[in-house]
Computed example of a mutant assay.
Amino acid sequence: MPVIDANWQHDYITTNGIKLHYVTQGEGALMLMLHGFPEFWYSWRHQIPEFAKYFKVVAVDLRGYNDSDKPKEQSAYRMDEFIRDIKGLIEGLGYEKCVLVGHDWGGAIAWCFAYTYPEMVERLVVLNIPHPAKLAEGLRTPAQLLKSSYMFLFQLPWLPEVLIQSWDYQLIENAFQGMAVDKNAFSKSDIEAYKNAAAKRGSLTAMLNYYRNIFQDQMFNKSLGILEVPTLMIWGESDTALGKELTYGTEAYVRDLQIKYIPNCSHWVQQERPELVNQYIQEYLGL
């Protein structure tokens, strides 16, 4: 069975015209967690109970994922829509600001949200996702272009869906087990949970639509300036999709930045090395 905690509460909230599902535990100030691709709230299973000691932790299914609504239009998966979702979620939960934590695509949304509404982000924590300007720079280099070749595959209609569904979603299993340095980081039931989430009606196309808008999205194609929100970046050094060099020079874009590197750890950093990730976040927040 996947990891289940009886203290986790499942709920829904309507924001920006859609219904989002989330899991929550704890009381107090808000810590909002945003997952990546091809995940859902479950990727924070090792962080939710730990940080619920200090915060009201909310791990949301982003639009298109798992039990959240899945608009059919590709245009519904632009960064400005994600930002409106998160603003409405924070306000709908009764808060004015939060500690915002994001990994992969959730981290990209977190970066852009912090730029758009810095007054709503007390602290920003991003895991294995570069600053948008550094990602844009990286995609102009042969090495990162090769690592990011899957992004170009995902631009195609219907073919990526067919490939990912083939052989009982084998590519999703490969994404986790194949990229992980510690092959024991994911149980068989963990992998099945991710497969089941991707298999829900409309999910796979919705998840891929994040990538299908990336090269046209203005949030990735404009000068964002200097981010004033204090930021912690945690980076698994053995990420095969996003090179460590994408972190170099980030301090030019962030006024108050700390970076923690974790050697021998993959892209799935908070799931592969949860104790160390939790420790670094706790130290950063002074808990």
Rank of each mutant, 00 (worst) to 15 (best):
Q155I: 08
P118M: 13
L145G: 15
F154R: 02
R140T: 15
G106H: 04
R140F: 10
E122D: 14
V125I: 14
V101S: 05
K134L: 08
A133Q: 15
A133H: 13
I129W: 01
A114G: 02
V101T: 08
Q155G: 04
M120N: 07
W158I: 15
P142H: 00
P142V: 11
T141S: 14
Q170T: 11
W105M: 14
L163Q: 08
L146Q: 15
A143K: 08
A108E: 00
L159C: 02
L135C: 01
I164P: 04
Q155M: 12
T141Q: 06
K134P: 03
V126E: 05
Q170S: 14
S149Y: 14
Y169Q: 02
L156W: 13
E161C: 12
L146T: 14
A136Q: 15
K147Y: 14
A133C: 10
N128G: 11
W167H: 09
Y150P: 10
W105H: 11
P118V: 13
L124M: 04
A133Y: 12
I109E: 00
H103N: 05
R123V: 14
L146C: 10
A143D: 11
L163D: 08
C112T: 05
Y117V: 03
T141H: 05
Y117C: 04
V101I: 05
F152L: 08
P130I: 10
V99P: 04
Y169E: 00
L135W: 13
E137R: 07
P118D: 15
K134G: 01
R123P: 11
K147R: 15
E161P: 07
E137N: 08
Q165H: 09
E119M: 10
V99T: 08
S148E: 06
G106T: 04
F113D: 00
W167P: 03
L124Q: 02
V121Q: 07
I164H: 07
W167E: 13
T141Y: 06
P157L: 01
T116N: 09
K134Q: 08
C112W: 02
E122G: 08
Q165K: 15
L139Q: 05
L153R: 04
F113E: 00
K134H: 03
L153C: 06
G107S: 03
E137I: 09
I109K: 00
W158C: 09
L146R: 15
